[in-house]
Structures are given as structure tokens and as C-alpha cells.
Design a protein around this nucleic acid. Structure first.
Lengths: 130, 130, 130, 130
DNA sequence: GTGGTCTAGACCACA
DNA sequence: GTGGTCTAGACCACG
């Protein structure tokens, strides 16, 4: 799993880390049930503080993406089912992103194509795992 | 033009304001060449600080969405053409959003349908401008 | 508002603090919309670290008990409506508490009386505020 | 006797175990004088460490709920009489639980009804012991 | 002046 | 060895 952090970015490190892990899960780089690195290891590897990693893991746990087991550390949860709250947030987020695309002159077709490509880039590893 | 701000939201007010204006432009509530309210007026209407509105306008100007003329105030720019930088950012943003959708169990079809709906909700006013 | 922390207790300080604030709200010592102390002030008053107070406030915010406004600090939210998730947790909690009472030989009547007394001790200040 | 442990829960396993046993006693699944499983057996059945079970038993012994006899293992103690210390702790616990219920908008009547239901679900087996 | 973030290093409970 | 908590002090974004 490759995680890239940008320390000059205004997005907090723990949020960047959370985002990278979310994408790693979706792309299959981290599969269901797989163990995440320990807080200490990851912090050292990335050259950041334990508590920063801790915060990212706590966020992922709270969102239901991972579970933290006192005995064996953190592991990836199974896929959830989409709830109403998430759909609302998703529509709000997309509304903004699509507005920007619209203003910047991007056609609907091109936008949809990009979405498809991203979707298709995910979980390529899943079938191979069987 | 209706602008909704949530002072308890973690998103900075000036960013919320910027987002609302971007969406207003995309939906045609603000058309090309249309004059934006003065900083002073908007700040008063919304009950926020002048500096906050100023910051939002500066952001929009820097992004090329509006022009600021000292004599005539701010006005909406024409549609841009999508540049490489924007496409990169868009792909990054979408990559995260789609990853979350994926993990939360949303199917590609449903996601695409939502995007279509949002696209279709835009620019209803545009034809009237011709 | 009087907050008592026990530094020798095994319950984390931020949880104790969270609990004390919850009880203060329920008893009317903190009324709806009332401003909480700033993180720094409270931390200094209690002789604890900013981040510990921060964590307690974040927990209360996440639970929906307070809102944090970037401009004016934290304030108490209006009463919520009980959701299913809460009722489940409540039943689990009560199941344990009542089991202990049962084993320790406490009669149902006595238990119910204690509950009533606690209920009646709350929000005495509310009507006076009008 | 059915014991459910959640390894991903933040509550320590030995505390969960202790809680489950307390509830089992109160519900009559474990009756007075009944022998508890040996530490070794229970640990194996639950797939946990001997020390964890040991810790739970020690806690129960210290609280007076069970007795541990080196020759005959652990057995459930007779019902106690409520002491002052317990009542204090009970009131503190209830104060917090009821405060949360209050803030979450639960009415006193509904709360009391839940308590009654839980009380009535207990000791169904008790009369058979006579 | 407010909360948000981050660090470096420490101690503790758990299993 | 794991995560959880806490400290003292720092810097930053926001308004």
C-alpha cells in the first residue's frame, strides 16, 4: 500500500491519511479483513506523530470503514450498505464538483467518461484473490 | 440568488460562500456578465464580516470564475475551457468521492444516475440568455 | 457550573468531563443555546491540557449535544428526539445496571424510586428562566 | 449460559465477560450456589486468554458476587443486601444515564416503562429453585 | 481570541 | 507489543 502525504497542503495530515486509506480500500489495495499497519509503524514510516495516525484511524473507525481490535490492531470492515445520510452528503458533494466542471466548460459526456474510468479502476484485484 | 451559510459547519464560511456562488453560476442563477452584489452589501445581508466576503470573492477571482473591476464591482466571467490542472484536480476529487461510494456499497449505475440528475438540473436558465 | 474531575479514577478525564457536561445540561445548569467556556479557559480552570478539553468537546459535538461555531465557540444544542440506536444502547446499559441492583438485593420499588428522584431533580431551573 | 463477547468493542474483554456473568446471575441463568466453568474451560470455549477470564473472576469475587474455592472452583454467592457504597455508585451511574435520556428527549414515563420491562424479564427461573 | 492541528515523548491498560 | 490517554507548548486558519 502506497500512501502519499503532502505536508504543504492545507488539508490536515490526518484527513489526507484517512482519504488515502479510503481510496486504498476501494481500489482493493487493502481488502476486507486485511490488517492495517500498527499506529506506531505507520507513524514512523510516514515520519509523523502517533497521535496523527491515531486520529485518522479513529475517524475511519467512527465512519465504519475499519474496526479496531485491542488484541490485533485495526482491520478493514466489509462493505456497508448506503444509508440516507450518506446519499445526502454525496449529492451535496457532487453538486459542487459538477458545478465546477460545468463552469469550466466540461461536457457532461466527458465527465461521465471520467467517472466510469475511475469506477473501472477499482477492485481489479478482487477477482484475482479468489 | 439564495445563499445558505451554516455557521456551525466545519467548512470555513468564506469557502461555503465561494461554493454557493459557484453552484449559483452553474445553475444559471447568476448568468455570464451578471454583476455580483458589492462586498459590503453581501456581508450585511448575510450578517458576516466584510473580510469574509472579500476572501470568497478573491478566491473566485483567482480561480477565474469572476472578474473584479474597481469601478464596476465583480461580475461573472464567461465559461472557461477545461485546462489540464483542473482535470487533474477533478480526477483526484472524484477518485475520493467514488471510493467512498464504492465502500458504502453504492453501485456504479446508481452513482451515474445521480450525476446525470445533477447535470440535468443545471443551466435551465441558459437558453433564455440567447 | 461546577465540574468535578477525579484524576485517580480509571475513567479518562475527557470522558469524565463529557459526562459532567451532559449532566449539567440535563440538570439545567447549562441551558439550551448557552455558551460553554472556551477550551483554553476550561483547560486552565481544571488544570488540564487543551487537547483533553478539545477531545471532550469533540465527543459532545459528535453526539449532537453541542455545536461548535468557529466564531463564538461552543454552545448547547436544543433537545433531540430519541432515535432507535440510542434506545438500544439505553436498554443495554440499563440491563446491566438493573442486574447489579437485583443481585445486590435491591427491590424494584426502591430502584424505581431512585430513578424518579433523579428525574425530578432535573431542569428545576427551566421554568424559572421564562 | 450464553456469553457474547465483542472483540472490536472498546470495553475491555474482561469487563464484558464480568458484565455478562452479572446479567446471567440476575436473569437466573446462573443460580445461587451454582458452579461457574473453570477458568481454563471458559477461556478455551471463548477463544480468549486464561488471564482474561481470571481477571473477570477476580473482579466478580472482589465485588462479592462469587466465591472462589481452590478445591471446587468458583460458585455464585447468595443475594447480598444493598450497602451504602453500592447505592452511591448506583445513583451516580443512573444520574448519567438519565441525564442522557433527558437530553435525548425521552420522557420519564417511557424511561420507567423500560426499567419495569427489564426488571420483569429477570429471575424467571428463580421460583423453580424453591 | 477562537478552535484546529501537530509534535515529541511519556505512561498506562489490555491481552 | 497493541492502542488509549495525557502533557506542554507550538503554529495556523478563521473571522
Amino acid at each position: 500500500m502506497i500512501l502519499k502525504l503532502n505536508f504543504e497542503n492545507e488539508i490536515p495530515i490526518y484527513v489526507q491519511l484517512r482519504n488515502q486509506i479510503v481510496m486504498a480500500i476501494a481500489h482493493g489495495d487493502l481488502s476486507q479483513g486485511e490488517k492495517l499497519p500498527t499506529i506506531r509503524n505507520l507513524a514512523e514510516d510516514l515520519g509523523i506523530n502517533n497521535m496523527t495516525v491515531n486520529k485518522a484511524y479513529a475517524m475511519l473507525k467512527q465512519e465504519g470503514f475499519i474496526s479496531i481490535d485491542r488484541r490485533h490492531g485495526a482491520k478493514v470492515n466489509p462493505i456497508l450498505t448506503p444509508d440516507f445520510e450518506f446519499k445526502e452528503k454525496l449529492e451535496d458533494d457532487l453538486s459542487l464538483v459538477i458545478s465546477e466542471a460545468e463552469i469550466r466548460g466540461m461536457k457532461k459526456d466527458e465527465f461521465m467518461k471520467i467517472c466510469e474510468n475511475i469506477f473501472d479502476s477499482m477492485k481489479k484485484l478482487k477477482p484475482q484473490e479468489k
